[in-house]
Amino acid sequence: MAGSPDHKTDDGDTGDTMVRFQSYLHGGTSSLLSTLPTVLVFPVYKTIFRQQIHNTPVCQAVRQLWKEGPVKLYRGVAPPLLMRTLNGTLLFGLQDTLLHQLAPSAQNVRPAVALPALAGLGAGLVEAAVFTPFERVQNVLQNGQNDRRLPSLRSVLVTLKVQRVSDGFYRGFFPIAARNALGSSLYFGLKGPVCVVVAGQGLSPVASSFVSGTLTSMAISLALYPLSVLVANMQAQVGGEANGVAASWRALWKSRHGSVALLYRGGSLIILRSCITWGVTTAIYDMQQKRSC
């Protein structure tokens, strides 16, 4: 009898560990399944990138990609595919782990979205630390101006490796950390309440999750789009003068002639990409979580 409480506690700990593991597994699975839309919309993403870097209208960006040909169209697709799967595994799993670590000491925290948002903030910071090198490589590969000097993934990796960490793989880390932390915090804080509101309109659970993920990601993408533009411009070049965040922002704002409209060039396309990928990811993740309960 004396050992019964300990036995129950061990079973509870094992159960909690399995629940945490499932969050990582479901996050990775949902992101892996959403890689098909990622591949399909990669030309859209690359069009956005060209607009962010060269400040060109969408028609001119499309003509650039068409002239380069189909082979170069998918240059740089490998990092986002790998990053997408690993990102979902870490983001969803770590947020769930942090949420359950915070819950016992914050039982009276209000509003209810505060804890998921706080856990999302922590997960976003870790995500930035892990995936900034992936984004750096991706942006270098997607910049057509690097094709001749850095023709392959290996050449990019070798070149970045010999540079200082802050100029090489972790160029643009601080705006990425701000974007990912804020984005993850808003996503995990809002998607639940939005899903409840949408479900109240009579939609199925899967449809509610999809719409929730879509609406939430749309709002986040619009709000944080300038940070994505800043990151793309900071990371696209290799070598040369490495300006800090403030100097890079001033140069970007000057290149956009102080126009918010020009700064948001390509924003409509990134909304489309976010709607597809995060809508699908949210729906698959929530469906898996409900089935495992």
Rank of each mutant, 00 (worst) to 15 (best):
K72I: 01
K72H: 14
Y74C: 01
R75Q: 11
R75H: 12
G76T: 00
G76F: 07
G76S: 02
V77R: 10
A78R: 02
A78M: 05
A78F: 11
P79A: 03
P80I: 00
L81P: 03
R84W: 04
L86K: 07
L86Y: 11
T89Y: 07
T89Q: 02
T89N: 08
L90S: 02
L90M: 13
L90N: 09
F92E: 07
L94K: 08
L94Q: 05
Q95M: 10
Q95K: 09
Q95H: 11
T97G: 05
T97C: 03
L98A: 12
L98R: 04
L98C: 10
L98V: 07
L98G: 05
H100G: 09
H100E: 14
Q101T: 09
Q101A: 05
L102A: 09
L102W: 15
L102C: 09
A103T: 13
A103G: 09
P104V: 01
P104M: 09
P104F: 13
S105K: 06
S105L: 09
S105I: 06
Q107N: 08
N108E: 13
N108W: 13
N108V: 00
V109Q: 14
R110Q: 14
P111R: 02
P111K: 06
A112V: 09
V113C: 14
A114C: 11
A114S: 13
L115T: 05
L115M: 03
P116F: 10
P116W: 11
A117Y: 13
A117L: 02
L118K: 01
G120I: 00
L121E: 05
L121W: 14
G122Y: 08
G122Q: 11
A123S: 14
G124E: 09
L125D: 05
L125F: 10
E127C: 10
E127H: 12
A128H: 12
A129L: 14
A129M: 06
V130K: 07
V130M: 08
F131Q: 08
T132Q: 13
T132V: 10
T132R: 03
T132L: 09
T132W: 15
F134G: 02
E135M: 11
E135R: 06
R136H: 07
V137P: 10
V137D: 06
V137Q: 02
V137I: 15
Q138A: 10
Q138D: 03
N139C: 10
Q142V: 00
Q142D: 15
Q142Y: 05
Q142R: 14
N143H: 05
N143V: 01
G144M: 04
N146V: 00
N146F: 00
D147I: 00
D147F: 12
R148H: 04
R148L: 02
R148F: 02
R148I: 03
R149M: 06
L150M: 01
P151F: 11
S152A: 12
S152Y: 10
S152L: 12
S152V: 00
